[in-house]
Design a protein around this nucleic acid. Sequence first.
DNA 1: AATAAAATTGTAATCATTACAAAATAGTAT
DNA 2: ATACTATTTTGTAATGATTACAATTTTATT
Lengths: 141, 141
Amino acid sequence: MDLSNINIEQYLRNNDVKPSYQRLKIFEYLVKHKNHPNVDTIYQELVSAIPTLSKTTVYNTLKLFLEKGIVQPILIEENEIRYDADVTVHGHFKCEICQEVYDIPLDLSDMKTEGLEKFIIKESHIYFKGICKRCNIANAQ
Amino acid sequence: MDLSNINIEQYLRNNDVKPSYQRLKIFEYLVKHKNHPNVDTIYQELVSAIPTLSKTTVYNTLKLFLEKGIVQPILIEENEIRYDADVTVHGHFKCEICQEVYDIPLDLSDMKTEGLEKFIIKESHIYFKGICKRCNIANAQ
DNA sequence: AATAAAATTGTAATCATTACAAAATAGTAT
DNA sequence: ATACTATTTTGTAATGATTACAATTTTATT
């Protein structure tokens, strides 16, 4: 799902979120940057443009976005929660060297999931850890 | 991988972990119960048998086990880290009703992972959220 | 038994997150 | 436009999980 050209204000309204200035800017940051930031990164990146911004607002807003299903949390490392405005099923890859998180297109449809009969799957998450292409090539020099 | 009949002391030694009493008991708990506990659960379950046990020791020990690769962290919810002594690739399913975490056998070998050429994958993690069979059937009554 | 090394423990410090109440903003009715 | 109400934002304090650290205990070695 490509959100880069949506009308963010309308998208928030459609998902039952009143588009306040802070909410618009936080969601816009997620859509524009696709860098899977954590709360602190979002705060640091926006506070210069919104000097009154409070970190509590970032927490509140992300919690709201999660409840409305317009962001998903990315859990890869034990000590950080990152956020992604793309809520379609796709995987993530975190590089242990540069720490970057990449989106990975995934097709889980033909995955064998024996033992899940009668289970209702509402969310699927998959992630990988290792060394990314760029760091791999850089290391090989 | 079934660890239920291994010699835990030998298994720890083989993985470069000196088998102290606390380490034995903590690893034994993980192997015997397979309930994917968090730090606090492990501590609460063992403190009656080891009255001097400190929660710091549980943290230290799990950190050591992680470094040696004999446990893996399970990240499903934002606010809890659970641990699994089965470090082979398999999935997990957390029920949103009973909160239980199930092991799911998985075969990722035929998964399409376009966009990962030249990436070195060292770990693969997959998890699902939803309603488990037991709660699903109970609800349907 | 004496010494050194390693592991455990308890307390204090840290850090991320949440609770909460006051202030600011937006929306509605008069 | 004004008064009133509801919502959102903000800052501070509280919470809770994890880590740092030094003292104690245990284990291993001489």
